[in-house]
């Protein structure tokens, strides 16, 4: 691979350091190793690729989740471009903020024009684009999808360090921890059984971000208790039989016809929804893990308290 600027080689190497260890048998060990590698990369970036003192690195993001992390972490002046999905209110929690910035479609040629110092990308998006940018000497930070609170914290930390905003990252993490402590303290004694119904009959398995958020809210995730794993799906019939009292429906592009949404409109399901309590939480909350994810927890917590109180009255 011909290098254009010899001086940029160390940066490219730093960006590549997360190559190497790959998926051992234990998924969590793998994720941990990626996280550690990412932290090491980030630390190296701070040492080797720190831009001129005082000036913050120019940041481009090419993934919906990293867009939102960057929006929460970066100084507005340092964001040069975000991905097109981040300005879509169906996908993104921060669509209004994102719409203020130039949007990209994640191709190398576009990104070169913005000439960012750091490109933040999802570990599953644009494999070719990421490696091309690395070979051209750009610093590329890969971020795994967030499934737990720990994931959110470590991604916040990794991105914050990479874009020279480590303090902001720590502040957001501290804020999140405070909110979580409050949620833990006020956890209702009686956990309400709940089930997430996503378009297509998908629900939330025990390893998902939605499960993490439900647990924080003090809800019992029924499908996870029943052993559904990996983006498990429920038939309408299973849903009818579910012992869950609370249905968490996640509307997503409800105006656009799709088979997936037809499941949500199933008459039987609507009949269940009238007998049980149903709340709506926009799909974007379950897509990316952010400090804002705790807002969804608070919505679920309120439903939990309402139902718990009603149960108490009935007794």
């Amino acid at each position: 691979m011909p290098m254009l600027e010899p001086s940029s080689r160390p940066r490219a190497r730093a960006g590549n350091a997360s190559r190497g260890e790959r998926r051992p048998t234990d998924r969590h060990a793998y994720r941990r190793s990626v996280r550690i590698a990412a932290s090491v990369v980030a630390a190296m970036l701070v040492v080797f690729a720190a831009p001129a003192r005082g000036a913050l690195p120019r940041v481009a993001s090419i993934n919906l989740c990293t867009d939102q992390l960057v929006l929460r972490l970066a100084d507005p002046s340092q964001i040069v471009t975000l991905s097109w999905l981040s300005a879509d209110p169906e996908e993104s929690l921060l669509a209004d903020e994102a719409a203020r910035y130039p949007l990209n479609y994640g191709t190398a040629e576009e990104l070169l024009r913005y000439d960012p110092d750091v490109v933040v990308a999802g570990a599953f998006t644009g494999a070719y684009t990421r490696s091309l940018l690395r070979s051209l000497g750009y610093t590329v930070v890969d971020v795994m999808p967030e499934l737990t609170v720990d994931d959110i914290e470590s991604n916040l930390r990794v991105v914050a360090r990479a874009i020279g905003r480590a303090e902001r990252g720590e502040a957001l993490i501290a804020e999140m921890r405070e909110r979580i402590r409050h949620l833990e303290r006020t956890k209702p004694a009686e956990p309400v059984a709940a089930v997430v119904v996503r378009p297509g009959g998908f629900t939330a398995d025990a390893g998902s971000l939605a499960h993490t958020l439900m647990t924080l809210a003090g809800l019992r995730n029924v499908p996870a208790e029943q052993g559904l794993d990996r983006w498990g799906s429920l038939s309408v019939e299973t849903l009818l039989r579910t012992p869950a009292e609370l249905l968490i429906v996640t509307p997503y592009r409800t105006d656009e016809p799709s088979l997936a949404n037809a499941v949500l409109a199933h008459p039987a399901l609507r009949a269940v929804a009238t007998r049980k309590t149903a709340i709506e939480i926009p799909g974007a909350y379950f897509g990316c893990g952010l400090p804002d994810s705790l807002d969804a927890v608070e919505i679920m917590r309120r439903a939990n308290e309402r139902l718990g109180a009603a149960n108490g009255d009935a007794l």
Binding site: M1, F124, T129, L132
Partner: peptide, 20 residues
């Protein structure tokens, strides 16, 4: 993850974007 599945699907449709 669903993201990996999506990436696989897209890859199978063929593309020459950002090859080196």
């Amino acid at each position: 993850s669903p993201y990996a599945a999506l990436e696989i699907l897209f890859w199978m449709l063929g593309s020459l974007a950002d090859r080196s």
